[in-house]
Simulated scan of single mutants.
Amino acid sequence: MKLLLDENLPKKLKFDFSEHEIYTVSDKGWNSKKNGELLKLMLEEEFDVLFTFDRNLQFQQNFRKYPIAVIVLNAQDNAYITLKELVPQIKEVLNKNLPTGPTEIKARA
Rank of each mutant, 00 (worst) to 15 (best):
P99C: 14
N97R: 13
K106H: 05
L38F: 10
T52S: 00
A107Q: 15
E85K: 15
L57P: 02
V93I: 00
P10A: 04
F59N: 08
G29P: 05
A69S: 13
I81E: 11
D6V: 00
E45I: 13
I68R: 03
T103I: 06
L9E: 03
T24F: 09
T52W: 04
T100F: 05
D6S: 07
I81N: 08
K96R: 15
S26N: 09
Y80E: 03
E21L: 10
A107P: 15
E92A: 14
D6E: 10
M1G: 14
G36N: 11
L41T: 11
G101V: 06
N62A: 08
F51T: 12
Q60F: 14
F53P: 08
K11M: 15
V25C: 09
E21I: 05
M42T: 00
N78T: 10
A109Y: 09
Q58P: 00
K14E: 10
T24M: 11
P102T: 08
A75Y: 03
D54Y: 10
Q61V: 09
S26Q: 04
L39Y: 07
K12D: 14
L41F: 05
R64Y: 12
N62K: 07
L94D: 06
E92Q: 14
Y80S: 10
N35P: 07
D77T: 14
L41P: 15
L94I: 12
D77R: 02
L38E: 06
D27W: 03
N97M: 11
N95V: 06
K12C: 04
T82G: 01
N35Q: 02
K65P: 11
I81A: 03
P67S: 02
K96E: 13
Y66Q: 09
V70Y: 02
K65E: 14
D6K: 03
F59H: 07
E92C: 09
L86I: 13
L57Y: 03
F15H: 15
A79L: 15
I81Y: 04
K65F: 11
F63R: 11
R108E: 11
V49Q: 09
E46R: 02
Q89K: 11
L39P: 06
K2Q: 10
L94F: 12
T100R: 10
N56P: 05
V87P: 06
Q89N: 12
K12A: 13
E44T: 13
L50Y: 04
R108C: 09
G101N: 04
K84Q: 08
I22C: 07
K28L: 11
L43R: 09
Y23G: 12
F47S: 00
V87M: 14
K96D: 02
P10N: 13
A69Y: 06
A107W: 12
S18T: 04
L57W: 03
Y23P: 03
Q58E: 08
V93R: 12
Q76W: 15
N8I: 09
D77A: 07
P102F: 06
T52R: 06
K106T: 05
V25R: 04
A109W: 14
V70L: 04
P88W: 02
L38D: 01
K28I: 10
Q60P: 13
E46S: 02
P102L: 04
A79E: 06
K28N: 07
A75D: 00
G101A: 01
L38S: 01
W30A: 12
N8M: 09
D27N: 13
N78R: 14
T100W: 08
K11Y: 15
D77N: 05
A109C: 12
N31Y: 02
I105F: 00
V25D: 13
N56F: 14
M42K: 01
K91P: 06
A75G: 09
G36L: 01
A109V: 10
L41Q: 06
